[in-house]
Design a binder for these strands. Sequence first.
RNA 1: GAGGCUGUAGCUCAGUUGGUUAGAGCAUCAGAUUGUGGUUCUGAGGGUCGGGGGUUCGAGACCCCUCAGCCUCCCCA
Length: 465
Amino acid sequence: MSKPSIPQGTRDFSPEVVRKRQYMLNLLKGIFEQYGFQPLETPAMENLVTLTGKYGEEGDKLIFKILNNGLHELKDAKREKVAEDWNKMLEKPFSSPAITERALRYDLTIPFARFVVMNQNELAFPFRRYQMQPVWRADRPQRGRYREFWQCDADVVGSTSLINEAELLCIYQAAFHAMKLPQVTIKINSRKLLAGLAEVSGNAALMMDITIALDKLDKIGWDGVAKELEQRGISADGISSIREIISVTGTNEEQLAALEAIMSGSAIGLQGIEELRKTLAYHQSLVNTAWDSTIEVDISLARGLNYYTGVIVEVTTSAVSMGSIGGGGRYDDLTGLFGLKGLSGVGVSFGIDRIYDVLEELQLFPAALSVATQVMIVNFGGENEAYALRALQPLRQAGVTAEIYPDAAKFDKQMKYANKRNISYVLIAGDDERAANKYSLKNFTTGEQQLLSLEECMAHISSQG
RNA sequence: GAGGCUGUAGCUCAGUUGGUUAGAGCAUCAGAUUGUGGUUCUGAGGGUCGGGGGUUCGAGACCCCUCAGCCUCCCCA
């Protein structure tokens, strides 16, 4: 006998877990809507060409591809094409529409960009949308990393105003405040600042290499970063100027002021500094003082996705050992990939699977999330069953969640079931009750039992909750 | 792509230098108790010890291969 199983990196969500996930999703949804974002859903699968080349070389490898149907029915030239392309696939990374036309979506941003381009004439820009759906990656699963996981994204497209950046920072703060998640830090940087850093260090062309190396500062320390910079072809002078830049400390404004001096020769770097200043200023005028998460300028923040062009952010909590729980940034020309030029966007993403793990570990889910049925009617079968059934609809119409045990099983079996289900009341409708046109209502918490009319039962339950 | 750990009942796990018929807790079912749950007590069912090969008088244990899961690095949420 083969034991049933689910694919690696996927999970079932039990009723209790779904309640907790819905708690997070409902909370995020409420905040997104409060900020004027509209819901959007896109298909689980996209055309493969929509996705390839958007996530870098590594990303392409992690896209789940879907095998075309009916390959065995192909004839002649098409059949030969499949055989030929199949051999290519066996030899090198290669995709063929003859074999795989579709793939599971890898994130929510690219499908969003695709949607915007397809619907550009109907949408009112700036267009603000939020989207909460699963995405799939053919990664090796490990702690906090799954092959199927959910993203919750909020993006604004069609506006270059930094008010958008500031509002998205507020959304992060509002959300983590509502979840009561402690020690949250939102790191903020700008790709332009990173470009300036590359320029000042004399390696403008190696900006990506520098940012990739810098991004590891937390993990491998400065010595490790220096070694990696060297490997990536940065000169000793360059490395020491990079060190000078990332050694800048102090408050956000102090850092920006210091960077401004260092980057006086880099137009793009100064532009990045100015953008961060404005973003933080807008944020100041929007912020709710109750929010306790901090926003920190961090020049070493890089983020892997290569379509970011302006402000970038990443969220972490030091309360638990876990990677980032959210991230985002501005992408000036995302829709340009699909032929719509000049439309700038900015967005953030919540990694709710990781946030779930964090909330669970810190026991931050509200205790009252489980919703048990209020009343279960015991089923004695025959005439008594009919009598019991008559009570069900009035209870439900009175707003009481109610169910009947569907089989005339042994009494103690039904009671055990009610107990296991955490049901608050059991309604007993047997010979004696039916003769009196009443019901025995048993409170499962106290064990107390009363013979009452149906109306009295409903009144009692409503008053006790 | 590289490396490490673990596979024994539905679940979590014991199982001594290789030695009779592989155990426990939980869960399930039955009974004590046919109209009263939780707490008890009694009993029962449930295993190709991941799979294949090898060493041995004898393998759950040792060796080889293989599969699966978990974890770490890379990268990411």
